[in-house]
Amino acid sequence: MSMNLAEVEQAMLALDRRDLAALIRRGLQALDYGDSEASQDEVDEAWRDELRKRVDDIERGRVETVPLAESFARAREAVAATRM
């Protein structure tokens, strides 16, 4: 039996928080991997490589860091601008 979107949503929202979180995680993984054959180890290694690159960029002065409070303020401004 096939379910339509409204039925899936209703069933999803009836789950307890733990099961809902597990379902969402699995759904996000499906979106992340799509048709990719990449293993979790390959994905993890790609993230480690990206992190190393970003740390190196900071240490070599190729990027400018922003204080956390300023970063949050910019994010709030950007969100507020989309609501107007």
Score class of each variant (00 low, 15 high):
Trp47Leu: 12
Ala75Asp: 06
Asn4Leu: 07
Arg25Ile: 03
Glu64Arg: 03
Val79His: 07
Tyr33Val: 12
Asp32Tyr: 05
Gln29Leu: 12
Arg48Gln: 13
Asp19Trp: 07
Arg60Pro: 03
Asp44Ser: 11
Ala75Pro: 00
Lys53Asn: 03
Leu68His: 02
Arg54Asn: 04
Ala14His: 11
Ala11Gly: 13
Thr65Asp: 02
Ser71Cys: 14
Ser39Ala: 04
Glu77Ala: 06
Asp44Ala: 15
Arg18His: 13
Ala75Arg: 08
Ser2Arg: 13
Ala81Gln: 06
Tyr33Cys: 08
Arg52His: 12
Ala21His: 12
Leu5Gly: 08
Gln29Arg: 12
Arg76Leu: 07
Glu59Thr: 01
Asp49Thr: 10
Arg83Gln: 09
Ala73Ser: 10
Ala69Lys: 06
Glu64Asn: 04
Arg74Met: 00
Gln29Lys: 12
Glu64Trp: 01
Val66Phe: 03
Ala38Tyr: 00
Met1His: 15
Val66Arg: 02
Ala80Met: 05
Leu15Ser: 14
Leu51Phe: 03
Thr65Glu: 06
Tyr33Arg: 05
Ile58Ser: 00
Gly27Phe: 13
Arg76Ile: 08
Glu42His: 08
Arg25Val: 03
Asp32Gly: 14
Asp44Trp: 11
Glu45Phe: 10
Val66Lys: 00
Met3Gln: 09
Leu31His: 11
Glu45Ser: 15
Pro67Gln: 00
Glu37His: 08
Leu5Trp: 12
Val8Ile: 12
Leu31Phe: 15
Arg62Phe: 01
Ala78Val: 04
Gly34Asp: 00
Glu37Tyr: 05
Met1Trp: 08
Leu68Asn: 06
Ala80Lys: 06
Glu77Gln: 07
Val66Asp: 02
Val79Glu: 09
Arg54Met: 08
Gly34Lys: 13
Ile24His: 10
Arg76Gln: 11
Met1Tyr: 15
Ala6Cys: 10
Arg25Ser: 11
Ser71Leu: 14
Leu23Val: 13
Leu20Ile: 07
Asn4Phe: 01
Arg60Ala: 01
Asp35Gln: 09
Asp35Glu: 09
Ala81Ile: 05
Ala21Cys: 11
Ala11Cys: 13
Thr82Gln: 14
Thr82Ser: 15
Ser39His: 09
